[in-house]
Design a protein around this nucleic acid. Sequence first.
DNA 1: AGTCATAGATACAAGCTTGTATCTATGGGG
DNA 2: CCCCATAGATACAAGCTTGTATCTATGACT
Lengths: 221, 221
Amino acid sequence: MADPAKRPSAAHTAYAVTKELILSGELPGGSLISEGEIAERVRVSRTPVREAFLRLESEELLALHPKRGAVVVPVPPGEAADVLELRLALERSAAERIARIGLRGDHHERMRELLRRQRALAEAADIGRFADADEAFHRCIVEASGNRLAGRFYATLGDRQRRMSITALRPRPERLSLLADEHEALLRHLLDGDSAAFASALLGHLTATHGSPYAAGRDDR
Amino acid sequence: MADPAKRPSAAHTAYAVTKELILSGELPGGSLISEGEIAERVRVSRTPVREAFLRLESEELLALHPKRGAVVVPVPPGEAADVLELRLALERSAAERIARIGLRGDHHERMRELLRRQRALAEAADIGRFADADEAFHRCIVEASGNRLAGRFYATLGDRQRRMSITALRPRPERLSLLADEHEALLRHLLDGDSAAFASALLGHLTATHGSPYAAGRDDR
DNA sequence: AGTCATAGATACAAGCTTGTATCTATGGGG
DNA sequence: CCCCATAGATACAAGCTTGTATCTATGACT
């Protein structure tokens, strides 16, 4: 089959497919899988699957048990709060910098476009794609700050976030419009340079969607 | 060794020990265990352990995989919110009934005693025992309503609650005093017959400790 | 005291998986 | 076009577990 640049290796395909199964929730935490099972699914031999498993183990998505199988590592119950707290920190920090340096036109345009897209997806009740546009909107906020490091770090939260949003975000389609409204409000605060209002609205927004990041164990309470 | 009434069977011992390991978090969700491993730990043969595993499977604490082992079923990420919502519902309902019928003296005494106990444990920084006294306090609220069914149902949330509170409640010892303060406030509202204030305070209390029950997927938002 | 039933110990067979070694196919470089 | 290296396929051995059958010990009842 025709493939651009270089055909991905069997090991990489096995890795990508398995990772997607985990992140999408099709293989939930606690599942017990095997090299043979994935090999059959991806239609390769066990050798590249073995390599993929090792990689996923290093990413703490799989726990390998010799001669017994691999367990999909569950999302630790407390991690939802940890990820949320980091998201809050990164986005607030981004809003403060944007208040200082302004919001570049292309970023503004991009957010507008994402908001329009969200409206359309809310109307179509497309929860999956809405979640993608939701995530892209928040990521754009962090990237708009110009802090490349923050942008990169934020992206690594994406995988962990996906595993939680699959179960946390079980919205009725009507809620999608509310979420789009809240995104509008966030953009307005950015444009006003009001990072305090942004922080407050963001906290409400994330709390309603994902629960409170200020759960037990936090030091700032 | 001397034992009262009847010595518990090996199967029951294996069951109780394994369940405690799971609820306490020593065997977290995603752990892969075996009959032999537990048999060695409890010092019995595999036969009673096998029976215990079947029981734990029916309670959805273990997932058995023939010839491979048993996986400790992880706490589903969304379940924290579900359990919290039920707790809220039961405790608010109890507060409303108590507002109507009053708080019996013995229940009042019991709660006072538990609060004193919590103060002492906060001072001793005994997080484990504090959590027990915390749980007993909330359970007493539900039992004080006189609704035996609610009391029984609330107790079944106990197991699920424990698996979450181990990770959610990672408090610094200082926070224990704050929790005791909040329990004082809850009792005061009960005594005042102010179920609305009780509901509001309870929401704040549980949200701070366990995160918001009104996460995505709720219908009342 | 004897008998019977049941819980549990134990040993061996069988299932499921990984680990390892060998072979093959393919692509790149000379 | 040939050779070499590497990715991957495949087959068999080995590890870990459960499933099953048999035996034993203990307690209860007669």
